[in-house]
Structure formats: C-alpha cells, structure tokens
Amino acid sequence: MEYLIHLAILVGIYAILALSLNLAVGYTGLILSKFDDDYYALASFGFNIIIFSVFLNWQELTRGPLGIPGIHRPEIFSFSFSDNLSFLLLTSVFLLLVFLVCRHITESSFGRALKAIREDEEALQIFGYRTLNYKLAVFVVGAMLASVAGALFASYITFIDPSTFTVSESIFILSAIILGGLASNRGAIIGAVVLILLPEFLRFVGFPSDIAAQTRQAVYGILLVVLMLYRPQGLVGEYKL
C-alpha cells in the first residue's frame, strides 16, 4: 500500500511536469517547431547543462553535489503533511489546480493564438500578433508550473541535489508528453502515468537495481524510437509532429 501511494505521488509530480512542458512544447511548438527546431533544441539542451553546472558549482547556495538534506514537509495551520497519504492528497490537489490552469490557458483565446503560432507563426505576425510575447508568456507560465512539481518533489523526498534534474530527466518528461500526445493535457497525464508505471514491472522481474535503472533508460529510448516510427502523434495527441 505504502508503495502504491509512493507511486501515485510520483505520478502526480511528473504529471504536473508533463503538463507544464506540454504547454511550452505542445502548444507553441517551442523546441519542436517546424521552422528552426534544431536550434531551439540545441539551445535548450545547452541551457539545461549550464544550469546544471551552476547548481553543481554554486556551493554557497546549493551545497553542490552534497545536496540539501532535511527539507520539511509542508505545513498549513499547524497541520503537517508528514505521512504519505496526506502528501498524496496535497499532490493531487496541486495536480488538479495545474490541470485546470493548463486547460484554461489552452481553451482560451490566448490558447488558440498559441496553437496558431505553432501552425504558422508568420501568418499570425502578419495579423498583428506579437508572437514573441505569446511564446514568452507561455514559457514563463510553464516554468512556474514546473517549479510547483519541483517544490513538491523536494519536500516529498526531503532532499534535493543537482543530479536529480539532469538532461535525461528532461528527456524523460519529453518522452511522457510525446507518448501521451503533444498539445493534449489529457495526453500529458496519461503519458506520465504510463512512463512511471511501465518500468515498475521491471522491478518485479528481479534485476539488480543498477541494471533495472539502466533497463528503464533503454525502455524509454526504444519507446521514443518506436513512437516516432509508428505513432508520432502519441496516444491521444492531436498534433502530428
């Protein structure tokens, strides 16, 4: 039971991450836009690595590779979310909030403008939209929502260190939204659920933990390739890459 709650919390946190990334990637086509996709992708990978080394080396702030232990579980009105069941409740509430925010954004006229940017940015510019502002706004909102997941994660594990969020973590979240389907809020959640639960089966096969972790990576990689080959729009996505 405790194990299931743990999984559910992880699913919740990653679903929030997937939703927020989907906002930037799926709707505006940032990073994966048809036009200068290569440069976006390169720059964002580069950015990830730069920030990672800032975390690793700014020892006064982050204690570098040692990480920061002893982060407290959140408290409201002297009620502490110290046991996992209540923490699951907290995560679910945040997931719901993030989902509603994302749905609100994507179904508003602002969201339609974003989709239009994804399809044809130049056309929208001709209509007088400042597409840069739109992209910037959704990028910032996406980042803020991602930080919700980060905050939940840190207080759940009660520990945070730079190695928690490497490039491969980004690839994982990207895989989740591609699996679920870009530009679909439901898809993002489904993708996160599947990708978290899928490798858990490997645990029962009885691999040693190091090999199990690597097998997980291999499964993700193969999954990405297979998706690109046979179903580039993902499980429930509307947008075909």
Partner: peptide, 14 residues
Amino acid sequence: GAVLLIASLGVLTA
C-alpha cells in the same frame, strides 16, 4: 526534423 531528432534521442538513451 523534430521527429528525427527525437528518434535519435531515443537511440542515444537506449
């Protein structure tokens, strides 16, 4: 290009 890039990302990871 994005599809190929993601596929190659998969190859890398695997």
